[in-house]
Design a binder for these strands. Structure first.
Length: 426
RNA sequence: GAGGCCAUGGCGAAAAGGCAAACGCGGCGGAUUGUGACUCCGCAAGUACCAGUUCGAGUCUGGUUGGUCUCCCCA
């Protein structure tokens, strides 16, 4: 009898968790500088929250949710995205009563029942930010800048920002009619996918990969914006220009969630199979009211961390990650083996990453293990050393060894590590 | 929801339906009771699962499971 992980999930193992931590730390640090505080909400919520928040007719709600009934006969759903839960929490915790705009970020797993492919999993992780309580276009721009900066600070090249305004629901409804009127005469010449898009989400037809040329004269949502939308969008662009954040205006950009208004944007990059969107977001001015709170405006993004990791890999970016061990204690003989526990404990309490053998292996194998451990130093402990209250310290790669008093070992190693670091930097 | 490709020790990778399933890397032991790395010898470890065809299946067929990639859609 054996078990396998569920389809579309991943075991993230030591060796790659370090890279995850690096990415997460980069996210946390940039959020701190932009004034965002971390929020941790439940991984499952009432199913109704996502139906209301994400939209009844979206693909996510219609066919991708992990929904189950709990023992109290309540319908629950593993969160497919982060915004709905954050907004629910904002309302429930009455953050609207706080004097300032609520600037929140989260990092965690999301769940969508889809067929896995390159850069797409059933359990995946997002880093997201939400700013709730202001319509200031400067916030839209700052959030776009934050995400852009995140990718840049990771060292990624070729990440671009696509920007659009999808207006208010009223503007979008009017544009939809205009677009349908344009598409209707050419319905027969559309591909099958586009025919179904016409019914479900006509704005997506313009995105069709099969035949782009035929839509050159299609109406643009940008031209359909009212004065207020126009002004907001113009100011977002101004802010981005002033901040030096590059972007591509893309009037055909549509997001897959219903709640977006005004600003919509995506981060794109090549290098993950057929997928080029690595993150996306926008403004959601009606969402808080939809979920039962005061009518507070919001703006945010969600970035796919697996996609970020895949990009790092495809661009060959390998950050310096700390070695697992500083010193490996090699024991010779039974007495030394018994003395090792206390020695390791002293070193570890003193702040040193110390490793040893637990398999009763011979000297030769212990030295090999020392090298695998990533330790800079090997400390050899045998009967001779024990009798003198000393230990032989040497570089793990060989060379001279020096006798060090057991009680001085921690400090000696610390000093050596320090000077080693200094040398590396000079 | 639809489709393509794939599945052999820990990793990589051979085996035209026919010896006991190569070989390389890595692991462990020994040569070499307390100082590895070179060398030599040895050991452990594998055909995803279930049926079928066949004298004989890792190899062919069907199914299952899983992986991977693509469409749809999305992070």
């Amino acid at each position: 009898m054996s078990f396998q992980k569920p389809p579309g999930t991943q075991d993230i193992m030591p060796g790659s968790t370090e890279l995850w931590q690096y990415v997460e730390n980069t996210a946390r640090d940039i959020c701190r500088r932009y004034g965002f505080g971390e929020i941790r909400t439940p991984i499952f919520e009432a199913t109704e929250l996502f139906k209301r928040g994400v939209g009844e007719t979206t693909d996510i709600v219609e066919k991708e949710m992990y929904t189950f009934e709990d023992r109290g006969k309540r319908s629950m759903t593993l969160r497919p995205e982060g915004t709905a839960g954050v907004v629910r929490s904002y309302v429930e915790n009455k953050l609207y009563g706080e004097p300032d705009v609520s600037k929140l970020y989260y990092i965690g797993p999301m769940f969508r029942y889809e067929r896995a492919q390159a850069g797409r999993y059933r359990q995946f992780h997002q880093f997201g930010v939400e700013a709730i309580g202001s319509v200031d276009p400067a916030l839209d721009a700052e959030i776009i800048a934050l995400g852009y900066g995140f990718y840049r600070e990771l060292g990624l090249q070729g990440v671009t920002v696509d920007l659009n305004s999808v207006g208010t629901p009223a503007v979008r409804a009017a544009f939809r009619e205009k677009l349908l009127a344009y598409l209707e005469p050419m319905r027969d010449s559309l591909c099958d996918d586009c025919k179904s898009r016409m019914a479900r989400n006509p704005l997506r037809v313009l995105d069709c990969k099969v035949d782009q040329d035929k839509f050159t004269n299609a109406p643009s949502i940008i031209d359909s914006l009212d004065e207020e939308c126009e002004a907001h969008f113009a100011r977002v662009r101004e802010c981005l220009d002033e901040m030096g954040i590059p972007y591509n205006l893309n009037s055909r950009l549509v997001r897959g969630l219903d709640y977006y208004t005004h600003t919509a944007f995506e981060y794109k990059a090549q290098g993950i199979g057929a997928i080029d969107t690595i993150g996306g977001g926008g403004r959601y001015n009606g969402l808080v009211a939809e979920i039962g709170g005061d009518d507070k405006p919001g703006v945010g993004f969600g970035l796919g961390l697996e996609r970020t990791l895949l990009l790092l890999e495809s661009q060959g970016i390998k950050p310096d990650l700390a070695a697992q061990a500083d010193v490996y204690v090699v024991t010779l003989g039974e007495r030394a083996e018994k003395a090792a526990s206390a020695l390791l404990q002293r070193l570890r309490v003193a702040g040193i990453a110390a490793e040893r053998d637990y398999l009763g292996r011979k000297t030769k194998a212990q030295f090999k293990a020392a090298e695998r451990s990533g330790a800079s130093f090997a400390a050899v402990l045998g009967d001779d050393e024990l009798d003198r209250g000393e230990i032989s310290l040497r570089s793990v790669t060989g060379g001279d060894q020096q006798a060090v008093k057991l009680e001085d070992l921690a400090n000696t190693i610390k000093n050596k590590l320090k000077s080693e670091k200094g040398n590396n930097h000079s």
